[in-house]
Amino acid sequence: MKAALDIKDLTVNYGGIPAISNISAEIPFEQVTAIIGPNGSGKTTLIKAVLELLPRQKGIVKVMGQPFARVRNHVAYVPQKEEVDWHYPLLVWEAVAMGRLKPGNILRALGSNDVEIVEESLAKMGLTAIANRPIGQLSGGQKQRVFLARALARRADLYLLDEPFNGVDATTEKIIMEYIQALRKQGKTIIIVHHKLNEVYSSFDLTLLLNRELIAFGPTLEVFKNGFIQEAYREKLEQNSEERVEKGEKCLAY
């Protein structure tokens, strides 16, 4: 069977300098794969190159055996929530409904089928009660759930999540974990970018460890057991734990 994501010898430059180089990995279907690495290790670059948002210097990427452009309707992407302006005048359900937009239905209004899917996605993320609230009034965790609901509304087969656990509360973290497990049970493929080292790893099937180059890729426990983490994070381990404290404080401040 073909891989959900087949990456061969991928190099991506950023401002003339390689941000990631010679990455090769076959990420299988129906598994939860975490892409892990310290800050600046090229995780987001890797995802963006796969989604053809960044030009590739070298290498081939096949998504479900095909070039990404051919299968984009089967892919849902959840960017980091910091990438958009949440003061945009938009209601929660309107933001989620954007997930139904595809090249084929740009000119048409939402159908009743679309509306149903949007309502279902809102419900799954626990957003029904605040569906009519402006997105600017949400907490960090609720914003993340809006993005996840939007991805759910796409009814995709492959989900790419960029740092979904960043700046979210415990409730949201639990909802996200349930969300990932539910998708996995439905036979979906999930790829999560992550940079914090914490307990959530136990529920990832595979881990791809990245620090500009591929450090390790395999079953999560093996990757963690073999000291690769220390190699990837090196001196950053200490710095990282400090950051977690900082982030935790920020969550409280919301």
Partner: peptide, 20 residues
């Protein structure tokens, strides 16, 4: 193009990934 323009102005990256 209201829905497409809204999506693109709110989240250009996701709009591009969706093929808009």
């Amino acid at each position: 193009l209201f829905r497409a323009i809204t999506f693109w102005t709110f989240d250009p990256t996701a709009a591009q990934v969706a093929g808009l």
